[in-house]
Design a protein around this nucleic acid. Structure first.
Lengths: 148, 148
DNA sequence: ATAATTACTTGCAAATTGCAAATAAAAAAA
DNA sequence: TTTTTTTATTTGCAATTTGCAAGTAATTAT
């Protein structure tokens, strides 16, 4: 078969570059990890710290500190859950929602631009392929365990 | 159109997880960046520092230090170019070649496992798609400029 | 009432990163 | 041929990020 590593290596790097651009909003510049955290909180409904950390496969101590930063930036709010005061519910502030939405829109814009270099047919094939790839990775035994 | 960001976000993360596993050889554990550096030196013929740093879009100062680490680990050798003593030619040591090849094989094995969860037809489609995606990104104006 | 778990937070210490500034060699300009 | 400019690479910080070990506080199990 093909040299899989070769093409995926290139893809990974290019995506890394794409992602570098993608997290500055206003004056602030967020890291990729932080943007992923915002994204996850935006999607889920009032998730706990542990929940999001697990989903993103980030060490909980690292995550704790990242959240502290995002709270200081007034993008995220932590509310103790009444039924169990150990857990913190995470929500986005208005600012946070704005930022998360902005990053989402930017990323979609970037991706759309990338896609514009392909034919309609190719675009659909690529989308189908990425979905397949995601499924395959979720079934894989060698990696990618967490995540949805 | 589809929510592109969604599916690519998931893919990016899963690949991040896949890559986490993929860089330990013997007792040593290399970082993803370091494995990319080894890969690049393996592919190219005696590249210079600047060359590899540009290809990988790594800041030259960061790169300089990474190479120092790899030299200490006896995976990379730096030889001053006779015609221009400013530039260092990079080559892999025997150890380095072994490690780079090992990582390459591991990654291919992981990817093959991932691919095993798809049909023959799907596998080919995915490969074609990733190549298309790489081309599209190389044409893109919003990112991914360096790289080959 | 006591012990064991769970959810999260801190205290290090090691890596990684990039900007500014330095060095040293080569090329261009005077 | 000097002098200046450019190029390739290295250091000096200083900020960020990371994970392990150990701690706190709230819950659940015994």
């Amino acid at each position: 078969m093909e040299n899989l590593r070769e093409i995926f290596q290139v893809m990974t790097r290019r995506f890394g570059l794409l992602n570098k651009n993608c997290c500055q909003v206003g004056g602030e510049e967020l890291s990729l990890v932080q943007s992923h955290i915002l994204y996850e909180i935006l999607q889920k409904d009032r998730p706990s710290m542990q929940q999001v950390a697990d989903t993103l496969a980030i060490d909980i101590t690292t995550f704790s500190r990242q959240i502290q930063t995002l709270v200081k930036l007034e993008l995220v709010k932590k509310t103790p859950l009444p039924e169990d005061k150990r857990v913190s519910q995470l929500t986005l502030t208005t600012q946070g929602k704005y930022v998360a939405t902005k990053i989402d829109a930017d990323m979609n814009r970037y991706l759309t631009e990338v896609f514009s270099h392909m034919s309609e047919f190719e675009q659909e094939m690529v989308i189908r392929s990425v979905k397949l790839l995601n499924e395959a990775m979720s079934k894989s035994t060698v990696c990618c365990k967490p995540l949805i």
